Simulated scan of single mutants.
Amino acid sequence: MEVQFLNNTFSFNLKIDKFDIPAEAVYPVFFIGVFMYVFSVLSNGTMLALIVTQRSLHKPMFYIFFSLPLTDLVGITCSLPRLLVDIITQTNNIYYPTCVLQGFLIHLYGGSICLNMMAMSFDRYIAICKPLRYNSIMSPLIVSCIIALVWGLDIALILVLFALQARLPKCKTFIANVYCNNPSLLQLTCGGDSTVNNVYGLFITGFLQIGSVSVQLLSYVQILITCISRSQPDARIKAINTCLAQIITYFIFVTVSAFNIISYRLENASSNTQKICSIVMFTFLPVVNPVIYGIKTRDIRNALFVVVKKHKVTCS
Rank of each mutant, 00 (worst) to 15 (best):
I252A: 13
G211T: 04
D154R: 12
V41R: 09
L80E: 01
F31L: 09
N92P: 03
L164N: 06
N44P: 06
L304W: 14
I155G: 07
S144I: 04
Y250L: 05
Y96D: 00
S263N: 05
P140T: 03
K172L: 09
F66L: 06
V3Q: 15
R265D: 02
L266Q: 05
C129P: 00
Y109D: 02
I142Q: 13
H107Y: 06
K59N: 08
W151K: 06
Y96M: 00
Q209S: 12
Q165W: 12
N93R: 15
M281E: 07
L149I: 02
I137M: 10
M61I: 04
I21S: 08
A156R: 10
L188A: 03
V288A: 02
L70P: 00
E2W: 13
V213Y: 09
M120V: 04
Q232D: 15
K275H: 05
C114K: 06
N289R: 05
N302P: 00
L188S: 03
L50Q: 07
S231R: 14
L202E: 07
F122L: 08
P60Q: 02
H58C: 05
M47I: 13
I295N: 05
V215Q: 03
G110A: 09
I247L: 11
D72Y: 01
L244A: 09
V308I: 09
N181H: 11
R124Q: 03
L149Y: 12
I113K: 04
D20T: 14
S257M: 08
V85L: 13
T46V: 07
S270L: 03
I16F: 10
L83C: 05
T91D: 14
I262Q: 02
Q274M: 06
S136N: 15
L202T: 01
I247K: 06
D193H: 11
